[in-house]
């Protein structure tokens, strides 16, 4: 299968999550209402969307790890004559591992999106827990911590004059997750988190 066809599958999962997170996603969320009643609320809808976003981020990161390994075997997975070229970046030993632990960036991405998904699922399962705010802040902090990493990786792309589409999708997904956690943070501060309970009674 063409690499861009596979990328579009990851993209579709992320896009579906983004749609769910927005007010436009109300009709889409209705598909889940009977099985997951929490999606009838704004909170539940955003959290469901974030699960898809994190899942897409995870799968695209897993694919970059797969590409990293395939490239080390000598295969070509996403090369082209255009500026869009993963081989030149994921296959470049000078840039393809993190400078602290020496691990492939794909594995770091998988770990990051797994952690974010743990925050999201925990919040979704127990939205009234006293720790909910802590988890939202944790997700926010983790996605903000991803920004300098994204900047470092973009600097590699600029240096090499190449763009790795798979890496870019993972970067954008981190930014979407950051926005999602910020929206959750604002929602938690308002009465809309649990419309039938006053904010003061939640604390």
């Amino acid at each position: 299968m063409n690499e861009y066809a596979i990328l579009s599958i990851h993209g579709a999962v992320i896009l579906f999550g983004v749609v769910l997170m927005t007010p436009m996603g109300g009709s889409v969320a209705s598909l889940f209402h009977s099985r997951y009643p929490s999606t009838t609320t704004k909170r539940g809808q955003i959290l469901a969307g974030m699960i898809f976003v994190c899942l897409g981020g995870f799968t695209v990161s897993a694919q970059t790890l797969w590409m990293h390994n395939k490239l080390s075997e000598g295969a070509s997975v996403c090369a082209g004559n255009s500026i869009l070229n993963c081989d030149g970046l994921i296959g470049n030993v000078a840039y393809n591992t993190d400078p602290l632990f020496g691990q492939p960036w794909g594995l770091i991405g998988m770990f990051a999106f797994t952690t974010l998904m743990w925050f999201v699922i925990t919040i979704a399962k127990e939205p009234m827990s006293p720790q909910t705010q802590l988890f939202i802040k944790g997700g926010l902090a983790a996605t903000i911590a991803g920004l300098p990493v994204i900047m470092l990786l973009v600097s590699y792309e600029i240096k090499e004059g190449l763009i790795c589409p798979f890496c870019t999708v993972a970067h954008i997904t981190n930014i979407i997750a950051l926005i999602g956690f910020f929206v959750l943070f604002r929602l938690y501060e308002s009465d809309e988190w649990a419309p039938d309970m006053k904010k003061s009674s939640r604390k």
């Binding site: 899942l55 797994t114 952690t115 998904m117 699922i121 925990t122 399962k125 127990e126 827990s129 006293p130």
Partner: peptide
Amino acid sequence: DASARSDAGIIVMSM
């Protein structure tokens, strides 16, 4: 709360 955290943990670790 603990159950929610561990359930979520099992799901994401499996993934």
